[in-house]
Design a protein around this nucleic acid. Structure first.
Lengths: 213, 213
DNA sequence: AACATAAGTTACTCAAAAGTAGAATTCCGG
DNA sequence: CCGGAATTCTACTTTTGAGTAACTTATGTT
C-alpha cells in the first residue's frame, strides 16, 4: 500500500503490475517466434498459446487482437535495431569501420525472432495507421544507415555514388538473412555473416593492393 | 479433322486447345500479379477473377486450387530465371563480366510479377512435395550462380573466399528488390539496380587504382 | 438444326482460425 | 477464511474466403 492521497481502494500492487508486464512480454516473445517462423497468416494463436501452456483467450487478456501482437512484435524489433545496432562503435577508426560494426550488429538483430519477423513480415499486413507508424520508424532507421554511409563518404573511407541507394542495398542484402531456413544444416551463421559483410565492403572485383579488414 | 487412326470421335480441335492454354496463361498472369502484390494468404481468388472479368469458379476450370496456382506461378518464375537470366553473355570478356550480366538479367526478372512472387512467397506455403520440387529448382539456380562466381574466381576476375556464401549473398541482395514497395516514388528502378550491382562489384571501400565497369 | 462438349455462372457449403461470453479459479488484503 | 478483483478456462459465435454442385450458355461438328 503506497501513495499519499485518499488512494482509491483498488490499486494494483506493483508486483502484480510487474508480473503482468512480464507475462505480456512472454506472450510477445512467443508470438514473435511463431510469426518469424510462419509469417503472419500461417501463424496461429492457438499455437502461440500452446507454447505458453495456456489457452487462446488468455492471449486476448494481454493483447487486443492478433494484429496488435504483430504490431508490438515489429515495433519491438525495430526498437532493437535502433538501440542495439545504433550504439557508438568503440574501436572504429573511420566511417567504414563504424558502418561495418553497425552492419554486424544489425545482422545479429535479424537473427533474433523479433528481428526476423520485423524483416520478413510486410507492414501491409497491418491497418493503415499502424502501417504508417511502422514505416515512419523504418525510414528513420534507413536515414541512420544512410548517414553512416555519407559519413564514411565524407572521410574518404567509403566510395559510392549514392548513399541513399547504397543504404537500400545494404539493408536489403542483410535482410535476406531473415529468410534463410532456420538452422540451415552446414552453414555456420557467424562465418556467413562475416563473409557477407566482407563482400559488401570489398566487392567482387579483386583489389590490387591493400587487403581490407 | 486430323489424326491418322480411327481417332475417337471427340477430340479437341487444336485451336480449342490453344485457346484454352492461352486462357490458362492469362489466369496465371493475373494470379501472379495478385500474389506478387499481396502475398499468398492476402491474395483472394475473387480478385484474380475480377481482374479477368470472370467469376471465381471459372478459375477452377483451369487450376485445381489456389495452391496449384501458386505452384505454377513460382515454377514459371523460376523458369524465367533459368531461361532468361542464364543465357550466354555476348560481349562479356571474363567471369566477372559474365556474372554482372547475369545479375542484371536476374534483377530484371525479379521486377516482373512472376519474379516478385517467386522471390517473395515462401515455398513453405506449398505442400511438402511441391515445396520439395521448388527447392530443388532453386538449388539448381543457386548452383548455377555459384558456378559463375567460381569461374570468375578461376580466371582471376573475381576475388572472394567462398563462392557458396557469395552466391547466397548476391541472390539475397538482389532478391530484396522484390520487396520494394511497387513504384516507389522517386527511385528509378534501372538506375537503382545498376547502383546496386556497382556496389556488389566494387564494394564500399574505395579502390586505389582502376575504376571498374 | 441437333447435339455433344466446352466454358462459365449462380448460389451455395465447408473449414479454419479469429474472436467473445461468461463461468471457474486463483490470489491477495483484510 | 472471506470478498472482490485478476486471471484463466470452457464452450461457443463469427467471419472469411476457398472450394463445389448443378444449372446455363456458347461453340463447333455432322
Amino acid at each position: 500500500m503506497r501513495g499519499g492521497v485518499i488512494s482509491s481502494p483498488w490499486k494494483k500492487s506493483p508486483e502484480r503490475k510487474q508480473e503482468r508486464a512480464l507475462k505480456r512480454e512472454a506472450v510477445l516473445a512467443a508470438a514473435a517466434h511463431v510469426f518469424a517462423e510462419n509469417g503472419y497468416h500461417r501463424a496461429s494463436l492457438d499455437e502461440v498459446a500452446r507454447i505458453l501452456n495456456v489457452t487462446k483467450p488468455t492471449l486476448y487478456y494481454y493483447f487486443k487482437n492478433k494484429e496488435a501482437m504483430l504490431f508490438a512484435c515489429i515495433e519491438h524489433g525495430l526498437e532493437m535495431f535502433r538501440s542495439e545496432a545504433s550504439g557508438p562503435s568503440a574501436k572504429a577508426k573511420n566511417g567504414l569501420q563504424r558502418l561495418t560494426a553497425y552492419l554486424k550488429r544489425y545482422a545479429a538483430v535479424i537473427e533474433s525472432d523479433f528481428g526476423r519477423c520485423t524483416v520478413r513480415i510486410s507492414d501491409s499486413e497491418l491497418s493503415e495507421p499502424s502501417s504508417r507508424k511502422i514505416r515512419r520508424i523504418k525510414s528513420e532507421i534507413d536515414r541512420e544507415l544512410r548517414q553512416l554511409v555519407a559519413d564514411g563518404q565524407a572521410d574518404g573511407s567509403i566510395a559510392v555514388t549514392d548513399p541513399q541507394i547504397t543504404a537500400l542495398a545494404l539493408a536489403g542484402a542483410l535482410n535476406s538473412i531473415a529468410f534463410w531456413r532456420h538452422q540451415d544444416p552446414d552453414l555456420p551463421v557467424d562465418k556467413t555473416v562475416d563473409e557477407y559483410i566482407h563482400l559488401l565492403v570489398n566487392g567482387l572485383a579483386p583489389r590490387t593492393s591493400q587487403a581490407r579488414k
